[in-house]
Amino acid sequence: MNSSISALPLSTHTCANEALTLRLPSSLQLKQQLPLSHALSRQVAAHRQAVRAILNGEDQRLLVIVGPCSIHDPQSALEYAGKLARLAEHVSDEMLLVMRAYVEKPRTTVGWKGLAYDPHLDGSDDMAGGLALSRELMLEMIRLGLPVATELLQPMAAGYFDDLLSWVAIGARTTESQIHREMASGLSMPVGFKNGTDGGATVAVDAMRSAAHPHRHFGVDSQGHPAIIQTPGNVDTHLVLRGGHQGPNHDRESVARIHAELIRLKIPSRIMVDCSHANSGKDPLRQPGVFNEVLEQRLQGDRSLIGMMLESHLFEGCQPLSASLQYGVSITDGCLGFSATEQLLLDAAQRLGTQARG
């Protein structure tokens, strides 16, 4: 995969304290170069509607967002996607599997920011190439029949692949951001807001309420010009529990408390649990335990639990970014290996199917 689109320099000399400016292609240009066909556009629309149906209780399947913590290698990402597409067919009666295609990564201080920023993994920050590669990969995943999910971190980057996405996450660090709430209010797909890093759900609940309303805000149009954006509001939002500084929040008591708060505020009680991050103590191999604990709550009748999220790659664990990388292993957060992921989801599908038939 290699795109000819590149950034164009606007200035080649700067003072010591002056930023260098490079012009990116517009989102419209990239979409024209890497178009979504009419057939695939209908497929994305159907996947979005399937997610909405789960959120609204019209579809009793479990929504599972699953895939690498971040994508850094196109080959291993597409191999994973192929495996996931085959698994998705096996469990389609009980689950809707959505591929994590995370191409932006928030950093606490500094570090690799994701495929969209630094696709060559060498600090060259070829963002034009990164945006094109990200779009190419998402298109390939959609061609495999998969719905695609990502976390939208930089609002200006969202327009380069927003037409490909069936589900979007707003992360714990950005859920409180007015800019991200405004962006979410204009998105055409369901959005999950993660609870804040303190573990509390108030910030995410406020975000859901804000995103449901229309907004007018500063933005950039598809041709790259500054614009006033008017949004219709997005009612297809939900809460994602990912734990916090005090520990997990996927346990029965935490879920019940949050469920009651959503009902009190007259907000639809639809909760997804992120089995990673603080809920697993940042140990990827503890994700199945979290998953099964939440699944048990659902099997016992808690229908506010509409889905779960897993960080999973071809092979378990993680590795530091270096010149010699192990194939199929995350370079950001540690992941569950695909074999363990597959067994976990097959077992869960069997339990869900047994309950449905019983």
Rank of each mutant, 00 (worst) to 15 (best):
residue 322 S to M: 09
residue 324 S to N: 14
residue 37 S to A: 06
residue 101 A to L: 14
residue 72 H to Y: 04
residue 221 D to M: 11
residue 297 Q to V: 05
residue 270 R to M: 07
residue 293 E to T: 14
residue 252 R to Y: 11
residue 312 S to W: 00
residue 143 R to D: 13
residue 288 P to S: 01
residue 160 Y to L: 07
residue 87 L to R: 06
residue 255 V to C: 07
residue 212 A to H: 07
residue 20 L to K: 11
residue 345 L to C: 05
residue 90 H to R: 15
residue 356 A to L: 15
residue 182 E to H: 15
residue 112 W to P: 02
residue 120 H to K: 14
residue 21 T to N: 13
residue 292 N to S: 10
residue 16 A to N: 10
residue 86 R to V: 10
residue 176 E to W: 01
residue 269 S to P: 10
residue 317 G to P: 10
residue 119 P to Q: 01
residue 338 F to H: 07
residue 107 R to F: 12
residue 186 G to E: 01
residue 107 R to V: 15
residue 343 Q to T: 15
residue 309 M to Y: 00
residue 185 S to C: 03
residue 343 Q to C: 12
residue 216 R to A: 12
residue 278 A to I: 04
residue 39 A to V: 13
residue 220 V to P: 00
residue 274 D to K: 00
residue 31 K to E: 08
residue 336 L to Q: 10
residue 73 D to P: 09
residue 232 P to K: 08
residue 143 R to Y: 01
residue 212 A to N: 09
residue 307 G to K: 01
residue 232 P to H: 03
residue 312 S to M: 00
residue 116 A to V: 05
residue 190 P to C: 03
residue 249 N to A: 04
residue 252 R to P: 15
residue 343 Q to F: 05
residue 258 I to N: 08
residue 44 V to G: 07
residue 246 Q to G: 15
residue 223 Q to G: 13
residue 292 N to M: 09
residue 75 Q to C: 09
residue 223 Q to M: 12
residue 59 D to E: 04
residue 144 L to A: 01
residue 338 F to S: 08
residue 33 Q to S: 09
residue 18 E to I: 07
residue 272 M to D: 04
residue 298 R to M: 05
residue 219 G to D: 01
residue 100 R to F: 06
residue 37 S to C: 05
residue 156 M to A: 15
residue 222 S to Q: 14
residue 226 P to E: 02
residue 39 A to W: 04
residue 223 Q to L: 12
residue 147 P to G: 03
residue 166 S to D: 11
residue 231 T to Y: 04
residue 247 G to R: 08
residue 90 H to F: 06
residue 190 P to S: 03
residue 332 T to G: 03
residue 200 G to F: 05
residue 129 G to L: 00
residue 79 E to A: 13
